[in-house]
Design a protein around this nucleic acid. Structure first.
Length: 859
RNA sequence: GCCGAAGUGGCGGAACUGGUAGACGCGCAUGGUUCAGGACCAUGAGGGCGUGAGCCCGUGGGGGUUCGAGUCCCCCCUUCGGCACCA
């Protein structure tokens, strides 16, 4: 009686064996090539979701594949365990964040182990553990010493819901990236990391990241937003000044007919001193929400200060205005306005009746001020520009900047959209910033010997604003390390993106007690060969991690410039949604068999396919999946349904299909175990008769699976090749005439063993089990990855396509060694082709060796 | 508005450098097995026309290059993602 595919027992068995044997533990081995495979570590929110299942399935195939290819594979996992949800849980359920986090980690670790992932669990790290965040603080102090961490009052993005500050990167369209509530602006003393000091390197480094998706690099380039131009000084009429402006279009300088200052610009109030209008405007802008003010929909408005500046090239007196659309943070907070060639300036000039002057002529048409309906922002030839007239824009810019530098009234300048990274968070569950504020000594870093500054456990977490740390006297009050006088601790904690900016380095020496990194180990493993995670981190995490890598390199702890050699951004996991007109999104169990809402009986509309989320009620719980079908099915389906970088559409039937496939493999191999247990003598391919097609198929599968993994991890087509092999195995008769018996067994055994080895990275439990039942003593992933026999995949008969005038008309079979002339003749003689050639003249015959013949005729 | 990606059967998706469009899976149909259902096994299938051999059409739409285009070039449409007063 055949044993059923009992995935539960079988998967538990192999997970136990891997754990007992510490099968995936690795150490540095100079004799082997290394491979560092890393998936983005998760936030321990409670349970894993399908995005994790997909992410980690992809990573596990990569790790196991390279393992079998003979690499020394580092494949670690950890927990991004600081962060707001832990505090929210504390507020809602009265659980301490530490307890909540620890419990979640325990549950999720169990889930990951149930998936059979090949992690070296000895390297597990937890970012909320003092052993980890100690080194956040250490790195902070190192950066403080180098001036890369500093404090300044700043307008910050403030989320009322989270009661904290958000980095620019965490604000999406004026809303909090986490809860989508409106973000307001607030001025606070904040800690910053000087990421702008590395702006150029972060930008240039992208060019060398050939293993990164182009769109991620584009997003980072846009985010850094480098603009090359000039700073120009405009003297003030009456001797004050000058006002310095930044422009990328110094070729339009002769068209600058007024200037505009940001309302926060110190000169704004100064110049408008006598004008209540200016005072009122500046005051109004100060209180107006900055996100509203800088929204593109907001109309441009401003006031004249009453003061004039001198255009340094035309020497004209031009009025100075203050307006809402100029930002203090970008450039110098002041602009020269060229209404003819800048749309914003054009709109402003039109509204307030300011002069417009054309100084760039495009090639196609002639611009005149009279019929200018919008600014011409393109390139052209400089006109009305004194001796520069006649120069095209690009050399014109160069000529103007040279002139400005010569006259010492301007210079080349570069500006970035990128701002320094604000890392202060007014929250509890994060790394304490290791700073002490002393009235006498000012800002004093905590001495290295006193690290880590432990996050106190005995806090009261309530809904009230601000961090509970500020109310904890035992934490706040501390003697100043310099003068021993009374001082207070910094109560801000660090943005959790700090944790994830270097965790991949810590994985190389996770247990280092007295240092952040063990240099030789990091040197052996880094950089990460393959990093895998969601596209949502294209800018945030991936930019910060690159920044940290460069900082740590400059601390001489590592020697490489970029952390992630190859990046795979996996697509989202999506599923169709169901909506009731009255009750909104419905879970599948809230819809009856007839497609009606269980609540009100109205027909439910099957909505579009969207990213899985609880709010859309289209989620699938990995626990259900694992208990119904097992890990191998869950993995196989998420790998088979789509290539990894594309969105995956969840399909319950597709899961069934994956499960059926594994059942089929199981039945097939298990049914043959007795006959195949004892290895038959290997028969050379050339000597094969009845087993030839199957043997060839196995070799083709090796080729296809290997190439598909090597070429961008296209696991879906690799799995398809395995299915083809299984289909052929299913038709193969193990028993035939007595003289063939040996060959049949030998070929069947070869095909089955090949199948199991190729299947091992995808469905490791099943592969291990069947491998063992075939009589093998060691783990299947200790087997070398097979190579195919070039001889075996050669076909002896070729199917050649024959076209007449590009249309398929016949197929002919020819021996593989047929030459071009043979193909030509055979095609022309083919009876079906002949009927098409009747009454026509053959003009040309195109022959593609081994593939195709195209006969071109005169009509 | 700017930048990027993608549009292929009833569905998810194949087709590497131009050379048999639709591999593989799902769903569907027919048959086998079964008391029956499920499961399993086999076979079939892009659409249209034809009794048939076969013919015509077919990769979002329109043009082009080529002996030959899903693939290359130009224009357009749709969807998704990113950025968006950045001087």
């Amino acid at each position: 009686m055949a044993r059923p595919y009992d995935f539960k027992t079988l998967e538990a068995k192999w997970q136990r064996i891997w754990e007992e044997r510490r099968a995936f533990r690795v150490t540095e081995d100079p004799a082997k090539p290394k491979y560092y495979c890393l998936e983005m570590y998760p936030y321990p929110s409670g349970k894993i979701h399908m995005g994790h299942v997909r992410n980690y399935s992809i990573g596990d195939v990569v790790a196991r594949y390279f393992w079998m290819r003979g690499y020394n594979v580092l494949h670690p996992m950890g927990w991004d365990s600081f962060g707001l949800p832990a505090e929210n849980a504390a507020i809602e359920h009265g659980v301490h964040p530490a307890t909540w986090t620890t419990e979640n980690i325990a549950y999720m670790r169990k889930q990951l182990k149930q998936m059979g992932l090949s992690y070296d669990w000895d390297r597990e790290i937890t970012s909320s553990d003092p052993d980890y965040y100690h080194w956040n603080q250490w790195l902070f102090l190192k950066m403080y010493e180098k001036g890369l961490a500093y404090k300044k009052p700043a307008f910050v993005n403030w989320c009322e819901v989270c009661q904290t500050v958000l980095a620019n990167e965490q604000v999406e369209g004026g809303q909090c990236w986490r809860d989508e509530s409106e973000v307001i602006q607030k001025e606070l003393d904040q800690w910053f990391f000087k990421i702008t000091a590395y702006a150029d390197e972060l930008l240039d480094g992208l060019d060398r990241l050939s293993g990164w998706p182009e769109r991620v690099k584009t997003m980072q380039r846009n985010w850094i937003g480098k603009s090359v131009g000039a700073e120009v000084e405009f003297p003030l009429v009456g001797g004050l000044g000058p006002i310095t402006i930044f422009t990328t279009r110094q070729d339009t300088l002769y068209g600058a007919t007024f200037m505009v200052l940001a309302p926060e610009h110190p000169l704004a109030l100064q110049l408008g001193q006598g004008s209540p209008e200016v005072q009122a405007f500046v005051e109004r802008m100060r209180v107006e929400d900055r996100i509203v003010r800088t929204a593109p929909e907001t109309e441009k408005e401003g006031v004249f200060t009453g003061a004039y500046a001198i255009n340094p090239l035309t020497e004209e007196h031009i009025p100075i205005w203050v307006a809402n659309f100029v930002l203090l943070e970008y450039g110098t907070g002041a602009i020269m306005a060229v209404p003819a060639h800048d749309q914003r300036d054009f709109e402003f000039a039109t509204r307030y009746g300011l002069p417009i002057r054309v100084v760039i002529q495009p090639e196609e048409q002639a611009l005149t001020v009279e019929d200018l309906e919008k600014a011409y922002e393109g390139e052209g030839v400089m006109v009305n520009s004194s001796s520069f007239s006649g120069l095209p824009s690009a050399p014109g810019r160069e000529a103007v900047v040279l002139y400005l530098e010569e006259k010492r009234i301007g210079k080349r300048a570069v500006n970035y959209r990128l701002r320094d990274w604000g890392i202060s968070r007014q929250r509890y569950w994060g790394t304490p910033i290791p700073i002490i504020l002393c009235e006498r000594c000012g800002t004093v870093p905590v001495p290295y010997a006193d690290l880590p500054v432990l996050l106190p456990q005995d806090v009261e977490i309530t809904m009230k604003g601000g961090s509970p740390l500020t109310r904890l006297e035992s934490f706040v009050n501390v003697p100043c390390p310099t003068c021993q006088g009374p001082a207070r601790r910094e109560t801000d904690t660090m943005d959790t993106f700090v944790d994830s900016s270097w965790y991949f380095l810590r994985f190389c020496s996770p247990q280092a007690r007295d240092q952040a990194l063990e240099k030789p180990k990091v040197a052996y493993w880094m950089p990460v060969d393959q990093y895998i995670g969601g596209i949502e981190h294209a800018v945030l995490h991936l930019l910060y991690a690159r920044f940290f890598t460069k900082v740590i390199r400059d601390l001489a702890l590592i020697s490489h410039d970029e952390p992630f050699e190859n990046l795979l951004t996996q697509g989202m996991v999506c599923k169709e949604t169901s909506r009731c007109p009255q009750h909104g999104y419905r879970f599948p169990y809230e819809v009856d068999a007839q497609g009606h809402c269980t609540e009100c009986g109205q027909p439910v509309e099957v909505g579009r396919t969207e990213k899985m989320s609880k709010s859309r009620r289209n989620v699938v719980d990995p626990d259900d999946l694992l208990s119904r079908y097992g890990a191998d099915t869950a993995r196989l389906f998420s790998l088979f349904a789509a290539p990894p970088e594309k969105d995956l559409e969840w399909s319950d039937r597709g899961v069934e299909g994956a499960f059926r496939f594994l059942n089929r493999v199981y039945r097939l191999v298990d049914g043959w175990v007795e006959e195949l247990r004892h290895p038959a003598p290997r028969i050379s391919f050339a000597a094969l008769t009845i087993g030839r097609p199957l043997c060839q198929k196995a070799h083709l599968a090796i080729k296809k699976v290997t190439e598909d993994i090597d070429r961008d991890f296209h696991f879906n087509t690799a799995i398809a090749a395995l299915m083809e092999l299984v289909n052929m195995l299913g038709l193969f008769e193990l028993h035939g005439g007595p003289e063939e018996e040996a060959e049949r067994r030998a070929v069947a055994r070869f095909a089955v063993e090949t199948l199991l080895i190729l299947l091992a990275p995808f469905a490791p439990h099943l592969a291990e089990e069947l491998w063992e039942r075939l009589g093998h003593g060691r783990n299947i992933f200790e087997e070398p990855w097979p190579t195919y026999d070039v001889e075996a995949i050669q076909r002896e008969e070729l199917l050649v396509v024959v076209q007449v005038n590009g249309k398929l008309r016949s197929r002919i079979s020819l021996p593989a060694d047929a030459g071009e002339e043979d193909l030509r003749l055979a095609a022309l003689q083919d009876s079906r082709v002949q009927t098409w050639l009747e009454g026509r003249q053959v003009k040309r015959v195109v022959v593609v060796p081994k593939k195709l013949v195209n006969i071109v005729t005169d009509q």
